[in-house]
Design a protein around this nucleic acid. Structure first.
Length: 419
DNA sequence: GTACATGATTCGCA
DNA sequence: TGCGAATCATGTAC
């Protein structure tokens, strides 16, 4: 406590000594007739200011009022303000000129790109689509995951804006409060408008730091969400049995050309409750793995062939009775797949001498290992032969017209024994 | 825990 | 751009 008067007096001394213009100021404002008397006045005022903290509240209030009414007060405050301007605040002012924060700009750009800040873009659907595209997905098939991503991103966006508003509101309130306080205090201590303005800037900078932390946290949240979204996409889930059945049916029914069109893929995706991309992946994997190990898949092929043949037989029977084309897939959903009207798949395994009788075409067919016969009903029950060649490539099945001679009967077989 | 199955991803190619 | 091939990563059966 003892230090304070000493410091005050010290600063008083420095202030007066360091500001030779004070006496002049006093003279200017008072006419300079009785300089000594005025100096005494100033000394009294300063003394009162210095000792104001040692007084009781009531005494201080009374002294404050007396000081405020003192004729020398405005001049004294002007001088003190000038001294402040030329010392501490000038140093602080030099530090205020900071370059725009690069990190803040990065954060702003990222938030804008992710659709968190800036105008509402469907809750960041563009970013979600970009994320989906990056993960190899696309189209309406990922809508469930997209909507989940969008919902969470929208949540982040909402929290971000709520917090931002809170900060801005708090910043404004605090700024107003400080300004009012400083204006109030400027009645009893020398505070220039410039200093108030500077203080406001300091407050804004402090709140900007908080805002940056908020932006950083939001960016982190978006990054976590995004990585989880991508991870979830990568996470493998086995398709259900029915989906695999549908895919296998199509694959073995189109062994001659197991490249489903976009429409077929969409149809399969719909039936299997998977995405078009997944259908593409499945066929890609299937073709590779089938070619790598035809023998292993032969049993599976036979199973689907038999099933398809039975279905086709049934359908054919009813179909011929009804005199209408049929679509023999075991699921019985006519026309669901991109099959030629009346495609009948038949796989022949000669290893154990088994042969499947295509009831519809009425022919006993025995062929080479790995060869696959694709019977096409249609005009004259034409027969297309499809097989995977020795090089592992797929040989396109001839079109019915190209393999069907008008003279060929149901039992005619185009057989490629290259395998 | 291990081997195998299988969906997803990546990369090079035509 | 779609495909084949290789590979990764995870699910599943034992």
């Amino acid at each position: 406590m003892d230090d304070q008067p000493r410091l005050m007096h010290s600063s008083h001394g420095v202030g007066m000594a360091g500001h030779p213009g004070l006496a002049q100021h006093m003279q200017d404002s008072t006419g300079g007739a009785d300089g000594e008397g005025r100096k005494q006045d100033i000394g009294d005022i300063l003394q009162q200011i210095m000792t104001i903290t040692d007084q009781s509240l009531d005494e201080a209030q009374a002294r404050k009022h007396a000081l405020n009414c003192h004729r020398m007060k405005p001049a004294l405050f002007n001088v003190l303000c000038e001294i402040k301007e030329k010392t501490v605040l000038s140093i602080r002012g030099a530090q205020e000129e900071e370059p725009p924060d690069a990190q803040l700009m990065r954060l702003d750009n990222m938030l804008l790109a992710e659709g968190v800040s800036g105008p509402e873009k469907g809750g960041g659907s563009a970013a979600a689509a970009a994320a989906a595209a990056a993960a190899g997905g696309g189209g309406p098939d990922n809508s469930a995951e997209h909507s989940d991503y969008r919902a969470k991103l929208s949540q982040i966006r909402q929290i971000y804006h709520t917090e931002l508003e809170k900060y801005e509101q708090a910043c404004n309130e605090f700024t107003t409060h400080v300004m009012n306080l400083l204006r109030e205090q400027s009645r009893t201590r020398p505070i220039s408008p410039k200093e108030i303005e500077r203080m406001v800037n300091i407050i804004h900078r402090k709140f900007s730091t908080i805002q940056m932390q908020l932006k950083q946290s939001t960016c982190e949240a978006v990054m976590i969400l995004r990585s989880r979204f991508l991870d979830a996409r990568r996470k493998r889930r086995n398709f259900n049995k029915q989906a695999t059945e549908f895919l296998n049916e199509y694959f073995y029914s189109h062994l001659s050309n197991p490249y489903p069109s976009e429409e077929a893929k969409e149809e399969l995706a719909k039936k299997c409750s998977i995405t078009v991309s997944q259908v593409s992946n499945w066929f890609g994997n299937k073709r590779i793995r089938y070619k790598k190990n035809i023998g292993k898949f032969q049993e599976e092929a036979n199973m689907y062939a038999a099933r398809t043949a039975v279905t086709a037989t049934n359908v054919s029977t009813h179909g011929s009775q009804a005199n209408s084309p049929s679509t023999p897939n075991s699921a019985g959903s006519a026309g669901s797949f991109n099959m030629n009207s009346g495609d009948l798949f038949m796989s022949v395994q000669s290893l154990n001498g088994d042969s499947y009788q295509g009831a519809q075409v009425g022919a006993n067919v025995q062929s080479q290992v790995g060869s696959t016969l694709n019977f096409r009903e249609g005009s004259g029950c034409s027969l297309a032969l499809a097989l995977s060649d020795a090089n592992g490539g797929w040989q396109d099945a001839p079109t019915p017209s190209s393999v069907t001679s008008p003279t060929e009967g149901p039992g005619s077989v185009h057989s490629d024994t290259s395998n």
